[in-house]
C-alpha cells in the first residue's frame, strides 16, 4: 500500500514530522480537522455503545407489567389496617374511624411541614391508602398493628430515625421531608380497589 507516497529520505521525513506540528500550515490544519472529526465521530459511537448498558439496568418490561394489585376491602373492620404488597413495597390500607378522620381534617395547613389536605389524600374519607415507606430513608413505619407505637400524632411512627405521621399519613415531626406517598389507585366497586 501507499504506492503513491513518494520516496523521501529519512532526514526529510523527520523534518516533515517536526514541521507538521507547527500551526497555520494548510497541511497541518487539514489533518487536525480530519482528526477532530474522526475523534468526534468515535466519541459518538462510544456514547451510543454505553447507552444500552445503562438502559439494561432500568426496570425490564416484565417488571413494568406487574404494576397492579387488587384488594378486597370488605373484611377490613373500622379501625383496622392491612398491609399489601405493590411493586415490592408495602401499601398501608386503613379503614379509619370517624375520630381519626375528624382529627386529620381539623389540622390547619399552616401547621404542616408538607401541606396537603386530608380530603386530597383520602377522597373517600374512611379509606386511607398510602405507600408504607418513610420518606426519610425508606424504612417501614410502625402503626399498622394495634400494639404498635403510633407516634405523637396517633398515626404512624418510623422507628429508624423518629419520624411521626398523623392519621392522614402526613409528616408532623422528625427528619422525613414529606408525607407518606399516595399510590395511584381506584375503586373498582365500593369494596374493591386496584392499586397501580
Amino acid at each position: 500500500m501507499g504506492g503513491d507516497i513518494e520516496v523521501i529520505a529519512m532526514a526529510e521525513m523527520v523534518t516533515a514530522q517536526g514541521a507538521s506540528q507547527g500551526a497555520g500550515q494548510p497541511e497541518a490544519t487539514k489533518r487536525d480537522f480530519l482528526k477532530l472529526t474522526t475523534t468526534a465521530f468515535a466519541a459518538v459511537g462510544v456514547g451510543a455503545i454505553v447507552w444500552p448498558f445503562i438502559a439494561s439496568m432500568n426496570p425490564a418490561r416484565d417488571v413494568l407489567a406487574l404494576a397492579s394489585t387488587e384488594l378486597d376491602l370488605s373484611p377490613i373492620a373500622v379501625g383496622q389496617s392491612v398491609t399489601v404488597m405493590w411493586r415490592g413495597k408495602p401499601v398501608f390500607v386503613r379503614h379509619r374511624t370517624p375520630e381519626q378522620i375528624a382529627a386529620a381534617r381539623a389540622v390547619p395547613l399552616s401547621e404542616l411541614k408538607d401541606p396537603a389536605t386530608d380530603e386530597s389524600r383520602a377522597p373517600r374519607p374512611e379509606w386511607l391508602v398510602m405507600i408504607g415507606v418513610c420518606t426519610h430513608l425508606g424504612c417501614v413505619p410502625l402503626g399498622q398493628k394495634p400494639t404498635d407505637p403510633t407516634g405523637d400524632f396517633n398515626g404512624w411512627f418510623c422507628p429508624c430515625h423518629g419520624s411521626h405521621y398523623d392519621t392522614s399519613g402526613r409528616i408532623r415531626r422528625g427528619p422525613a421531608p414529606s408525607n407518606l406517598e399516595i399510590p395511584p389507585y381506584s375503586f373498582m366497586s365500593p369494596t374493591q380497589i386496584r392499586i397501580g
Binding site: 501507499g2 507516497i5 520516496v7 523521501i8 521525513m13 516533515a16 514530522q17 507538521s20 487539514k30 489533518r31 480530519l34 482528526k35 472529526t37 474522526t38 465521530f41 468515535a42 459511537g45 451510543a48
Partner: peptide, 23 residues
C-alpha cells in the same frame, strides 16, 4: 452506516498520519 462513515474517516486520517512516512 455509522461504521462505514467512521471507517472512511479513520482510513483518511490514517493516510494523512502516514503520508510523510515511507513504509
Amino acid at each position: 452506516i455509522f461504521l462505514a462513515i467512521l471507517g472512511g474517516l479513520v482510513y483518511a486520517t490514517k493516510r494523512k498520519v502516514w503520508a510523510d512516512v515511507k513504509h
